[in-house]
Amino acid sequence: MSRRPPVGVLAMAGVAIGVLGLPLVGLLQRTPWSSLGATLGEAATLEALRVSAVVSLAAAAVSVMLGLPLAWVLARLPFRGRALVRAVVLLPMVLPPVVGGIALFFALGRRGLIGRALQNGFGVDTLIGTTAGAVIAAAFVAMPFFVITAEAGLRQLDPRLESAAATLGAGRWTVLRRITLPLLAPSLAAGATLSWARALGEFGATITFAGNHPGRTRTLPLAIAQANEAGQPEAAIAMSVLLIAVSLVVLVGLRHRWLAPRRRWPEPSQEIPSP
């Protein structure tokens, strides 16, 4: 059925695996396995793991809740300047995260565009050292991943299916709930997973915008960077291995369901005979 790809393709694929995989091998080879348990058992590490879990999941949730309507608008609503809006949406993907963090200050900071409104309306004095700030920073860099995946899914969706549902008596919400969302589910799940993974690894925007506060904004990446700066590479490596392990478990666990978007319904194979 499947033909073997040309040797050149195999060779390049091998190089790609090397580029992506060798650093990981190098890290594992230098991992202080004997002291790993002790490092990971430290209260500070577990705290960073907890903060990472809370922040990345909340950021993924924010990305889905706000990103889905945005993806819908981008995919379905023709308007002037749509290309520009899409470019702006994707900008955080190319922006250095540190710049993203400073830009967030200019928007939400005390002297930012809506900082005063935040202070007067919600009593938010500063987002530095708050988990909310860390979630905002992580969502800022993670949401584009969800938006592009969801938009691509929406574009592949046959709009005639939604029209067909309407001609059968389904109102907007019924169409959304019973047709659009179920058909979109694989894309949404892939997008949510990607944005979660991006939020989990987020560093620059978080430390710039939300700062580094143990138990509130010090996620695993921040703790790793701090250990590295402090000349404690063993601790940094140990926590990196933890981060990799958590990510691998989740990504491999979800792979079958979502990340390799196989058809969720079988190909026509067992046709029943005509009566």
Partner: peptide, 8 residues
């Protein structure tokens, strides 16, 4: 539906 023939 993907398992049906055109006529079905």
């Amino acid at each position: 539906p993907a398992q049906l023939s055109g006529g079905q």
